[in-house]
C-alpha cells in the first residue's frame, strides 16, 4: 500500500521515546493480571499476535490476505485435536498447529502469489472459504460443535497450565517471542527486501530479486505466526470451533490492523486490544457486533487510513518518509 513508508527517519529522541514506551508496555502486561481479568488479557494477547502476524504481510510486504482465518483457525483445530484426542502435551500440540499453519500457508501462498492486488485478496478469500467448507465436512473438526474440552495440561510436564497465573505468563512469553520474531524479520535484510517489494515491485524484480519467492516466504512466515496465535488460543480457551475459520475472522484481523495502523509495529497490538475490548463490551449489550465492526471499517477507510498509531506518528513523532494522504 503506497502510503506506508520506510521507517528510520525519526529523530533520536523519538527512538528513545519509542523504547521507553515499549518497556512501559511490557511492564504493564507483566502486572496487568493482578488488575484485569486474565482470560480477557489472554484473548487480547492471542489476537494481538494474530494481527501482528497479519501485519507482517499487509504492512511490510503490501499483500492483503483475506484468508488469514485459515491459519488461525486451522492451527487451533490441529492443536486442539492433538492435545485432546492424542493426549499430546500442550507444547507439542502448539508446535503441530504451527507446522500445520505453515503448510497451509505454503499451499495458499503458492496459488495466491500468482496474481496481484485485489485478485490476491479474492484468491485468498476463496481458498480460505474452501478450507472452511473442508472443516465443516471433515470428521476430525467435530462439525458445528467443534473440539471442546481441550485439556490445558502441563507445560514441559512441569508447569500446570490450569493455574490462571501460570498460563497467563506462558501466553505473555509466547506473545513477546512472536512479536520479537516479527520485529527481527522486519529489520533484517530480508525484511528490507520485502519492503522494497511493497514500495515498487517492478523495481525489485529489475534489481534481480526473485519477488515470487520472497512473497511466498513472507506469506508462510505470516501464516506460521498466525498459526501460533491460533494454537495458543485453542489451549487457553480449551476449544476450537468453526468461528475461527470463517471469513468474518479474516475480516476482523484486517480491521485490527487497519484500526491500529498498517505497517507499524505497535498498531496491530493496539487495534487488537480495542477490537477485543469493543466486542467484550458489546457482548453484554444487544447491539450487534457486525454493525459496529462494519462501521469502524468504513470510518477508518474514510477518515484515518493510517490508523491510530500511524496518525500519532504523523502528528507527533515527526515525518515517516513518504507518508502521503
Amino acid at each position: 500500500m503506497a502510503e506506508l513508508s520506510l521507517r528510520g527517519t525519526h529523530a533520536k529522541s523519538s527512538v528513545w521515546l519509542e523504547w521507553t514506551l515499549v518497556g512501559l508496555g511490557i511492564l504493564a502486561l507483566l502486572v496487568a493480571p493482578f488488575f484485569v481479568y486474565p482470560i480477557f488479557l489472554m484473548k487480547m494477547l492471542c489476537f494481538a499476535l494474530f494481527a501482528c502476524a497479519f501485519n507482517l504481510l499487509l504492512g511490510y510486504t503490501g499483500l492483503l490476505s483475506f484468508g488469514h482465518a485459515t491459519f488461525f483457525g486451522g492451527a487451533a483445530y490441529f492443536s486442539a485435536y492433538a492435545v485432546k484426542v492424542w493426549g499430546w502435551p500442550p507444547e507439542a500440540g502448539i508446535l503441530l498447529g504451527v507446522l500445520g499453519a505453515a503448510l497451509l500457508g505454503l499451499v495458499m501462498g503458492f496459488f495466491a502469489i500468482r496474481r496481484q492486488g485485489i485478485y490476491f485478496a479474492m484468491i485468498t478469500l476463496a481458498l480460505s472459504q474452501m478450507f472452511f467448507f473442508f472443516c465443516v465436512q471433515a470428521p476430525f473438526t467435530g462439525g458445528e460443535d467443534g473440539i471442546q474440552g481441550v485439556p490445558r495440561g502441563r507445560l514441559f510436564g512441569m508447569l500446570d497450565l490450569n493455574v490462571s497465573m501460570n498460563i497467563y505468563y506462558f501466553v505473555l512469553a509466547v506473545f513477546l517471542i512472536g512479536v520479537f520474531a516479527i520485529w527481527r524479520i522486519i529489520n533484517s535484510p530480508f525484511g528490507m527486501i520485502l519492503r522494497s517489494i511493497r514500495e515498487n515491485e517492478s523495481r525489485a524484480i529489475s534489481l534481480g530479486y526473485s519477488v515470487a519467492n520472497y512473497k511466498l516466504a513472507a506469506f508462510v512466515m505470516s501464516a506460521t505466526l498466525a498459526g501460533l496465535a491460533g494454537a495458543l488460543k485453542a489451549i487457553v480457551f480449551q476449544f476450537a470451533t468453526l468461528t475461527d475459520v470463517t471469513w468474518q475472522m479474516s475480516g476482523e484481523v484486517i480491521l485490527m490492523t487497519l484500526l491500529g495502523g498498517i505497517g507499524t509495529m505497535v498498531g496491530p497490538i493496539i487495534g487488537a486490544s480495542l477490537v477485543v475490548g469493543l466486542e467484550n463490551t458489546l457482548a453484554t449489550s444487544n447491539f450487534p457486533v457486525t454493525i459496529a465492526t462494519g462501521l469502524t471499517f468504513m470510518v477508518c477507510v474514510l477518515v484515518f487510513r493510517r490508523g491510530i498509531v500511524g496518525e500519532v506518528y504523523a502528528r507527533f513523532l515527526g515525518p515517516r518518509g513518504d507518508a502521503k494522504d
Binding site: 500500500m1 503506497a2 502510503e3 492483503l64 492486488g117 485485489i118 485478496a121 475480516g251 484486517i254 487497519l258 457486525t290 454493525i291 465492526t293 462494519g294 462501521l295 469502524t296 471499517f297 468504513m298 477508518c300 477507510v301 474514510l302 487510513r305 494522504d325
Partner: peptide
C-alpha cells in the same frame, strides 16, 4: 488511493 481501500470500505458496508 490504493484500490484495496475500496475493497475494505465495501467490506465494512457489507457487514453493516
Amino acid at each position: 488511493i490504493d484500490p484495496l481501500y475500496g475493497l475494505l470500505f465495501t467490506f465494512g458496508l457489507a457487514l453493516v
